[in-house]
């Protein structure tokens, strides 16, 4: 029992690492990773929604009629997304402004709906939480890593602290749209390289 729980948790961290391995939920990955802070903030918001919706879907899995299950999942997910939206607005307003439209868009993040459908609706609540937490943390770490690379080259800082000294010319390309695609593509390539061995 404990062993399989650990398995459900860790698969999200490497074997099925959401944005890289499953290539799902790319929009926030590309859009908000201009800095480490944004990336991790987005990751935590998504993790919260993922864990809560997984839990509720799993609890209700025997009650929800199969025909309207997607509609039910969407209602559940949208509810938690709105909760996150309001709470972030009240307590971390600057971050909320930076992430902007991508907070409500967690609702259409394929990872969240995908986990509800593929995992939570078939497993018991404890496993569903482990799965949600694993996927969420994997997602957060990936966003943080991508954010670190882009912030480091694009702005010369990490978490706002300069890393290159004063005569470093920021490589602005990295924080703009094209840099996001190229950077993610190269990181994916790196993961494939490591995964081969």
């Amino acid at each position: 029992m404990a062993q399989s729980m650990v398995k459900e948790f860790t698969k999200g961290l490497w074997a099925e690492l959401p944005p890289f391995r499953l290539v799902l939920g790319l929009c926030p990955v590309l859009a908000v990773t201009k800095s480490v802070e944004n990336g991790i903030g987005m990751g935590i918001a998504t993790t919260f929604v993922l864990v809560c919706s997984n839990l509720l879907v799993s609890l209700l899995r025997n009650i929800i009629p199969a025909k309207v299950r997607i509609a039910c999942f969407i209602v559940i997910i949208a509810t938690f997304v709105t909760v996150v939206e309001l709470v972030m607005q009240a307590y971390t307003y600057p971050l909320f402004l930076k992430l902007g439209i991508f907070i409500p868009l967690i609702v259409v993040n394929c990872i969240v709906l995908g986990r509800a459908e593929a995992f939570a609706s078939k497993n018991s609540p404890i496993f569903a939480i482990a799965d949600g937490l694993g996927m969420g943390i994997g997602f957060t770490l990936s966003l943080g890593a991508l954010g670190a690379v882009r912030e480091c080259f694009g702005n010369g800082t990490i978490l706002g602290n300069p890393v290159f000294g004063s005569d470093f010319q920021p490589f602005t390309f990295m924080v703009e749209a094209p840099g996001a695609f190229v950077c993610l593509g190269l990181m994916l390539c790196l993961m494939n390289l490591i995964g081969k061995k």
Partner: peptide, 22 residues
């Protein structure tokens, strides 16, 4: 190159198109 195949090269290509739209 093998590690770049599929999605990876796709993303890099998308980056180039984005650059032209820039």
């Amino acid at each position: 190159p093998k590690p770049l195949q599929d999605t990876s090269i796709g993303l890099v290509t998308a980056g180039m198109i984005a650059l032209s739209f820039f």
